[in-house]
């Protein structure tokens, strides 16, 4: 067993873990955050996507011991102030509005890759969006409304005057 300390959504989670524990299982079973989903556990489907040090990565392809002392943002760390439930980030809200989901299982991963894309590429083309989500398999939507959702989010982000990063208190209170 090895002790690891991982900052998950701004809160440090310290635990003794087996080296074989993936970051995915750490987030779900140790940190207790169930929004990160296991889809294939071999790095293809993208359902387990989280942000590590700001990069969207697959948490089933990282061991918890590798993420020691690193910052992780899971879907629970997107959205508004973590203390106030019911708030959504602009990206999350756009997914709701464009119906960029159905069963909701791949959705946290999709939202996170979209957040990561828009943080780097504020005015993405449809091609940029399709490339960004191409590692995340969705079986419900055929991606059409997901692409629309990310476009909508990009538009809305472009039209606001204050920028926040996922995991930090958002500007939602500023209206």
């Amino acid at each position: 067993m090895i002790q690891v300390s991982i900052e998950v959504n701004g809160k440090t989670v310290t635990a003794e873990v087996e080296p074989r524990l993936t970051l995915l299982d750490f987030i779900r079973d140790v940190a207790g955050l169930k929004g990160t989903h296991a889809g294939c556990e071999h790095g293809v489907c993208g359902a387990c996507t989280v942000l590590v040090e700001g990069n969207a990565i697959r948490s089933c392809l990282v061991l918890a011991v590798q993420a020691d002392e690193q910052e992780v943002i899971s879907i629970e760390g997107v959205g508004g102030d973590l203390g106030r439930s019911g708030e959504l980030s602009i990206v999350q809200d756009a997914f709701c509005e464009a119906h960029g989901l159905q069963c909701g299982y791949c959705t946290p991963g999709m939202v996170l890759v979209a957040e990561a894309l828009l943080a780097d590429t504020p005015n993405p083309t449809e091609g940029d969006i399709r490339e960004a989500i191409s590692g995340n398999i969705c079986r419900c939507t055929g991606y059409v409304q997901i692409v629309e959702a990310v476009m909508l989010a990009a538009d809305r982000l472009a039209n606001r005057n204050y920028k926040s990063k996922p995991g930090q208190p958002s500007d939602q209170t500023l209206g």
Binding site: G46, N55, I57, L61, A116, G135
Partner: peptide, 9 residues
């Protein structure tokens, strides 16, 4: 090579 998330690691 892979996707953006796999290239990140």
């Amino acid at each position: 090579v892979g996707h953006p998330p796999t290239r990140a690691r």
